[in-house]
Nucleic acid binder design. Structure first.
Lengths: 197, 197, 197, 197
DNA sequence: GATGAATGAGAGTTCATTCAT
DNA sequence: AATGAATGAACTCTCATTCAT
């Protein structure tokens, strides 16, 4: 059978684009590169996407969600089961962060690409800002929950704490992108200290 | 006057490249774009640079230094004059950071570009890592000095504190790149808190 | 009709390249020149060839064969039909050579180009050397057949005779390239003399 | 002393051009390449030559003469001293030919270049044709002398013999250009045979 | 006599996109 | 749904040549 279902090919293209945008960058990845990876040819691309730009948007939409959902799900689950404890939660979160999965470096590459393109494309800017807000809101919720449970007594308000945590996270991730050998495990101490006492 | 000195033109090109790489991105800036800005023609470029790539490296080298030196100079000056005080130092530093100068957004754009290209070019990777280390070392020195002067009593070691501060800084800067309207002034509270007691 | 089959366009390009490389030279023929001749645009070229260099190789491969085959075929045919006679064979061969066909001058131009490029490209060097050997071998066979039939009694061995004939041929052809008006018909006497008695 | 005499620089340029045109080819040798070799810069070139084309002409003029003169001088000397003998003369001539001097391969490269350019530049065409005629005339004289001295009894006239010898020579030289390892010493037998009896 | 900054035309090549099939 | 030939604009880079110094 020569033809896939359309959806299959489209999904393959998005998957390949995610990988290639993440490694080679958006600008340096040609439509052909993607299609080579997928085993399809030029024309197939334009059956599914209006343009390369549109593909970038699709990649963005899908991945932004995935990224968020992991953490949110973990939080809600723990709260539901009454096992939530801020320190161990943060530690688990950091473990996910510091573990090198196959897709994580792709994601950082894509994310950097998006940040850069955000100055050109309003849609990307909005998407990132939304994601950013979601993160901050999620952590705010987390910190509030922790305070409610008397696990922390922050001296600054939870919003600021959350914003800082996200910035810290992004700063670390970028650092690791440039130097994958860096050992950031000690940093966990930093996070712990943020909430100690 | 038709002919400049070589250095003049070269400097103009680097200046224009800094601006354009920062706004449009390296890949989307053509050699022609740069030369239009400078008021020279294509060939002039290759009198001064072997390739566009080499230009990127020059921009990187020059700007990395500039960026570092501002802060280091401020620190040394204050220590020399006996006016160094960690909280106000950090506040001044943040003021510089949070003030929108004309060149700062360019710099963030160029920096993002460099981070992205670091996976392709060893030289860029090394340069960023060096800069990163310099930053961390500088802040370590600053924290040590502050501790020495009994201005802070950090619970984690100064190295970790420094690494975190740099990450925090980078995280904020990127956030601001995506959303220039964001008000990060409240964040100063965060920094302050980091060192309070 | 806007779209050809690929093979059609590819063949047209090779044909045009043969003509232009032969007249203007490889270096002075631009990809655009070729495509103008063909009535296609630049991009079409790269659908069929990886580079201009590759095109040169294709032209070489194809033409080298054509050039050889004419003569070999003539020889085999005559032997098969029992009409082979060395003197008249050589005369026919020379007639082909000395007649100005439309494509012959192109070929000499291309050949010169290849000889020159042979110092840069191993593939060309090998190809010419192979062709050269084929020529020598063919003439050796021809001379052996002629000796076998008692048509000549060469005082030097057939290999040397063959090598010399090829050199003579090439020397003449080059002379004619520089001065197309030269009358080389008298030279036939020379060839005849080579085998007389 | 920073400045040479003009003549010195000019001569150096011609010498370097000869080498580079011979190895890399005229088209692939840039004016800069030549000046690098000489240790001068662009402007110096145009003090001495109107254009790159003119340089080619100068190289041609000078080298064409040198090439010819060697042989002519040898011939005249031997005749004057009464030591002229056709077979040994040809052998000496071939020894010069077959010996690999440093400059010979350059010369063949330049010569091929000139042949190719002859279709574009009337001056080159004329120069080569003149040289060609000179060669033929010289060999004609040589053969006539040999016949006069009863050293050969050619069955074809001396002109044809001379033309053939030149063609043979050129054919061999080109063969050696493509495959420098080829051993053409056996070919001497061929030349000898040409005149035997 | 020589420098080297600048010109500007033109080269080979890439690539997002279109479209007949 | 997919192919792949073709487009054409854009790109980086080369180079013969000019000219102020």
């Amino acid at each position: 059978m020569r033809y896939n279902t359309g959806e299959e090919t489209k999904a393959n293209i998005i998957q390949a684009a995610f990988k290639l945008f993440g490694t080679k960058g958006y600008g340096s990845t040609s439509v052909d590169d993607i299609l080579n990876e997928v085993g399809r040819t030029r024309g197939a691309f334009y059956t599914h996407f209006k343009s390369k730009e549109e593909l970038l948007m699709e990649v963005m939409r899908i991945r932004m969600e995935i990224h968020m959902d992991d953490l949110e799900h973990m939080f809600k689950e723990q709260v539901k089961q009454g096992t939530f404890e801020i320190k161990s939660f943060i530690q688990q979160f950091l473990k996910v962060l510091f573990e090198t999965t196959t897709t994580r470096p792709y994601w950082t590459g894509v994310y950097l690409e998006l940040i850069k393109q955000s100055s050109q494309y309003k849609e990307i800017q909005d998407c990132i800002n939304n994601a950013y807000d979601s993160w901050v809101n999620l952590f705010e919720k987390i910190f509030k929950k922790a305070k409610e449970l008397n696990q922390i007594k922050p001296k600054v308000n939870e919003k600021i704490l959350a914003t800082s945590l996200v910035a810290l996270y992004e700063g670390y991730e970028i650092h690791r992108y440039v130097n994958p050998n860096v050992n950031l495990c000690d940093q966990i101490l930093m996070y712990e200290w943020l909430f100690s006492e």
